[in-house]
Design a protein around this nucleic acid. Sequence first.
DNA 1: GAATTACGTCAGCGAGTTTGACATAAAAAT
DNA 2: ATTTTTATGTCAAACTCGCTGACGTAATTC
Lengths: 167, 167
Amino acid sequence: MDTLAPKGGETPFLKDEELRQGIEMMFYAYRDFTAEPDVILTRFGFGRAHHRVIYFVGRYPGMTVSSLLGILQITKQSLNRVLGQLVREGFILQKTGVEDRRQRLLELTDKGRSLEMELTANQRERFARAYRDAGDDAVAGFRKVILGLMTSDEDRDRFDYDDDAGG
Amino acid sequence: MDTLAPKGGETPFLKDEELRQGIEMMFYAYRDFTAEPDVILTRFGFGRAHHRVIYFVGRYPGMTVSSLLGILQITKQSLNRVLGQLVREGFILQKTGVEDRRQRLLELTDKGRSLEMELTANQRERFARAYRDAGDDAVAGFRKVILGLMTSDEDRDRFDYDDDAGG
DNA sequence: GAATTACGTCAGCGAGTTTGACATAAAAAT
DNA sequence: ATTTTTATGTCAAACTCGCTGACGTAATTC
């Protein structure tokens, strides 16, 4: 980094600068957040898409293909290439649903759980360090803001958030 | 969403649950954060990579190719296809450096700035809303945590952060 | 019995990344 | 002045990962 200075050094409008910093912080944080798992994944011939599938199946054992599609927001064709690979290679198990036999309930095998743990360990440590260094109040603020960045309440509701909404 | 409940409902270990929520919040927020610009980009036949280039060139006018590579952390071959496209189509201008004539200093054309504004408007609004709803203290906490998620001080130093580090 | 739902699959396309090798021009080092 | 390093660009091949569109099957619902 050499002669780099953000444009508008005289802060003609503080708000814009503040918001742009938000945009950039998201970029840098996400870039670093995914970098190390990506390295592990290449050892298995997998990519980031595999990570996401493994992560969410580990998180919600017995989840359906539909709900996974709803979370990832990709097409079933895109998912199926990745998911099929994980099933064929023994990382994920599909069980026919009991109530609705059309469903294929997904869960990790031991092999899958092992990879999930290795991948997630890094990201957990990253958050543990950031949370510890920032302190509890900062963490509460972080959660408030990042939940506010999401588009849908459906996603926000996955987290126990206490907005002023709760009467 | 149907019968989805995170594994470990009895919170056998609060920490793990807290950290996993962090991981997931990052995923959902980033997914939504990029979704709408992606739609605009397809109108121009561009992708997310073009957005990043346009954004950072707009942010740091006169930046070099090297520093852009340093920020994006991709290979020059990857960058060059995207960057070359943006130059050929008149969104970005390359000027030979004055001090170092090997450098190609990058800046947006009017056309480029116009697209940059359209793309960024959405993300700025998203942050404006999230920041406003969360309040100043929460924003300060958000910044602390998300800066802590980054790997390098070099990136943290792009932001005016007041950690206890500043003796 | 017909319509809908959950899931899968074949085929093709394109963006975006990678590695590796090579080329040119300018600057820096000797 | 020559050599080495730096900044940038380019050719080629491969792979991930998303997309659209079409079609198929089994199970459920109407």
